[in-house]
Design a binder for these strands. Structure first.
Length: 496
RNA sequence: GGUUCCGUGGCCGAGUGGCUAGGCAAAGCUCUGCAAAAGCUUCUACAGCAGUUCGAAUCUGCUCGGAACCUCCA
C-alpha cells in the first residue's frame, strides 16, 4: 500500500505526510465568519476537510480537528445600524452582537449537519479567546515586531521580512506589496502599507469592544487563528487548512505572528481548497453572485432550476479534486444528483446481496474486485483524490448492477470477496466520503403500506389485470413514489 | 501593473510522455404486458502555433482566452 502524500502549499510540492507525534494529527481549519449566512462557496472547505478528517481517522490517526468560529470584528446586520452603541434606544431594540452571531452560528451548524460533516473536536470562538489574543500581541510587541498607534497595534511586516521569508506561502514579494495603493481606513497610522492590525481601537459606535492594554478595541483578523491554534494544537502542528483566498494575507500573517511568538512555523502542511465559481467567476459577497445554502436546498433562487439536496452538493464537490476550481451550473448539479442516485442504489443493492455457495467462483472477477477495492486507498493517499475514488466505485457499480440484472452471476464471488466488497463500499461511501442515503426514510409504516400495495399489484399482474397494476403504479408516481419492476420479479419503490 | 494558476469530447470533470478515467446527456439494442430501472454497444477529446522526442493532450517556447490573489473573502 502507498503512503499518504499531500500537496503542501508552503513548498508547492506533494510531500509524504508524517505526523509530528506518531499516531496523532493536529489539524486547524479556518472556520466561518458568522456575520451572515453561508453560501455554496463556503461549503467546499468544510466538506473537503471533513473528508480529510475522516480519512485520517480511517488511517488510524487520533485527530484533533480544530475549526474556529470568527465571531469578532466589525459586524452589522442588514437593516440594523452599528451606531446602536451610542443611540438612545432601549437595550432590547439595539443590535446585540451576540444575538447576531448566535443566529448565524446556528445556521452554520445546521448546514454542516445537513452535509453530514462530522463535528470538529474543538470549535473555539474568537470572542472566547480575547485574553489569549491580547497575550500574544503583548509578546509580539515585547519582541519588537509590533507597535502601537492611537490605541491600535500593528505588526511590523517590514522588520519581520528582514529576517524571515514573509510572502513565501502566497508567493508574494514584499516589494511588490509596496506598489499597491488602496484606500483603507487608518492607513496613515501604519509605518508601512503592508503592516497589518493586531488590535484595532474601536470607534465610539463600534458595538464589539473589549478592554485591552491599549484601550477599548477589538482584535485584528489574523491573530485569533494564531492564538487558538497555538492554544489547542501547540506551537507546531500538522495540518492547517482553508480556502486558497485566505493564503494572503490571512495565512501569511498567521505564520508571521506565530513565528514571532513561538519561534516556529505553526503548521507543517498547508492545504488549500480552490474556489467554487459561477459563470467562471468566484462566488463571493463582493461579486453579488452567491447562492446561500438554504436557497440551494430549497431551490429558491433565480439561478436555480430546482432544489439540490445536501448530499448532491457533497457529491458534486467530491467529484472534483479539492485544488481545482469547480464551476457551478444547474446542468452539473443535475448530473451529480443522478450520478449519486445511481451510486447509492447500487450500494443498497449490494447490501442486500447474499453469497450462494452452490455456484462456481470466478477468480478473475474476484481479483478485479480485490484490486479495485485496494486501489481506493492509493487514490486517497494521492492528495485525497476523491474524484478517482468515485470513478473507481462507479466501475464496481457496473458489476453490481450486472449481478442484479443477471448478466453476471453474483455467486461467482467467494464469500470472502463478497464481504470485502461490501465492507469497502461501506467504508468509502459512508465513513470516508460521508455520503448517506437521503431516501432511507425510516418510515416503517410507509414501508408496510408500500409492501401491501406491491402485493396487490403483483396479484393484479399475475392475473394480467394491467388496468389495476398500472393504476397503482401511475397514481403512486403522481405522489412522487416510483415503482420499479425488478428483473427477478421483485418490485421496489423509491421516493422521488 | 505584479504574482500564481488554468484552457480536456454536447455538459461537468480525473489524469498522465506510449495503454478505456468517471458522471451526466444523446443514439441503437437486450430485458419487460407497458413503463421505469438496469445491462450491452456507439459517440474518442485534450485552446492555437512552433519545438524537444522513436512517440506529447501530457515537456519547452510563443500566441490567444479565462481565473484567483495583491482589499473583506471559503
Amino acid at each position: 500500500m502507498t503512503s499518504l502524500k499531500v500537496h503542501n502549499s508552503y513548498s508547492r510540492q506533494k510531500e509524504e505526510f508524517k505526523s509530528i507525534t506518531p499516531g496523532h494529527v493536529g489539524m486547524y481549519v479556518c472556520g466561518p465568519t458568522v456575520s451572515g449566512e453561508s453560501h455554496l462557496g463556503h461549503a467546499r472547505p468544510f466538506i473537503t476537510f471533513d473528508v480529510i478528517y475522516r480519512y485520517l481517522i480511517y488511517l488510524g490517526y487520533k485527530v484533533r480537528y480544530v475549526r474556529n468560529i470568527t465571531d469578532a470584528g466589525h459586524f452589522e446586520e442588514e437593516g440594523r445600524e452599528a451606531e446602536d452603541k451610542i443611540s438612545k434606544k432601549a437595550v432590547i431594540e439595539k443590535l446585540e452582537p451576540m444575538e447576531l452571531v448566535q443566529k448565524y452560528t446556528n445556521l452554520f451548524h445546521w448546514a454542516m449537519h445537513q452535509f453530514n460533516n462530522l463535528e470538529p473536536s474543538i470549535e473555539p470562538t474568537a470572542t472566547g479567546h480575547i485574553v489569549e489574543q491580547i497575550e500574544m500581541i503583548k509578546k509580539i510587541m515585547a519582541d519588537g515586531y509590533a507597535y502601537e498607534v492611537n490605541g491600535s497595534v500593528y505588526f511590523d511586516v517590514k522588520k519581520y521580512a528582514e529576517k524571515y521569508p514573509y510572502g513565501k506561502l502566497s508567493g508574494r514579494v514584499i516589494d511588490d506589496l509596496l506598489e499597491t495603493t488602496r484606500d483603507l481606513e487608518n492607513q496613515e497610522e501604519k509605518k508601512n502599507k503592508q503592516d497589518f492590525a493586531l488590535w484595532k481601537s474601536a470607534p465610539a459606535e463600534h458595538i464589539m469592544r473589549w478592554e485591552s492594554p491599549w484601550g477599548e478595541g477589538f482584535p485584528g483578523w489574523h491573530i485569533e487563528c494564531s492564538a487558538m491554534s497555538t492554544k489547542y494544537l501547540g506551537d507546531e502542528f500538522d495540518i492547517h487548512g482553508g480556502g486558497m483566498d485566505l493564503m494572503f494575507p490571512h495565512h501569511e500573517s498567521e505564520i508571521a505572528q506565530s513565528n514571532i511568538c513561538n519561534h516556529k512555523l505553526p503548521a507543517r502542511y498547508w492545504l488549500h481548497n480552490n474556489m467554487i465559481t459561477i459563470n467562471g467567476k468566484k462566488m463571493g459577497k463582493s461579486y453579488g453572485n452567491q447562492i446561500m445554502l438554504s436557497q440551494l436546498f430549497s431551490g429558491k433562487h433565480p439561478l436555480l432550476q430546482q432544489a439540490y439536496s445536501p448530499m448532491t452538493i457533497r457529491f458534486f464537490i467530491l467529484q472534483t479534486h479539492y485544488r481545482s476550481t469547480l464551476d457551478f451550473s444547474n446542468e452539473a448539479l443535475i448530473a451529480a444528483e443522478k450520478g449519486l442516485k445511481r451510486l447509492m442504489e447500487a450500494y443498497q443493492e449490494l447490501k442486500k446481496m447474499e453469497y450462494d455457495p452452490s455456484k462456481e467462483r470466478d477468480e478473475k472477477l474476484e481479483s478485479l474486485f480485490y484490486a479495485s477495492g485496494a486501489e481506493l486507498d492509493d487514490f486517497m493517499n494521492d492528495d485525497f483524490s476523491t474524484a478517482k475514488v468515485l470513478a473507481n466505485l462507479f466501475s464496481l457499480v457496473n458489476h453490481i448492477n450486472s449481478f442484479k440484472s443477471g448478466t453476471l452471476e453474483k455467486t461467482t464471488l467467494s464469500a470472502d470477496c463478497f464481504a470485502y466488497v461490501k465492507s469497502r463500499f461501506k467504508i468509502y461511501i459512508e465513513d470516508i466520503l460521508g455520503l448517506k442515503d437521503e431516501n432511507e426514510s425510516e418510515h416503517s409504516r410507509l414501508n408496510g403500506l408500500m409492501n401491501l400495495l406491491i402485493d396487490i399489484r403483483k396479484e393484479a399482474k399475475s392475473k394480467k389485470d394491467y388496468a389495476t397494476s398500472d393504476k397503482i403504479r401511475n397514481q403512486l408516481q403522481q405522489l412522487g413514489i416510483l415503482l420499479k419492476d425488478e428483473k427477478d420479479g421483485r418490485m421496489s419503490y423509491q421516493l422521488e
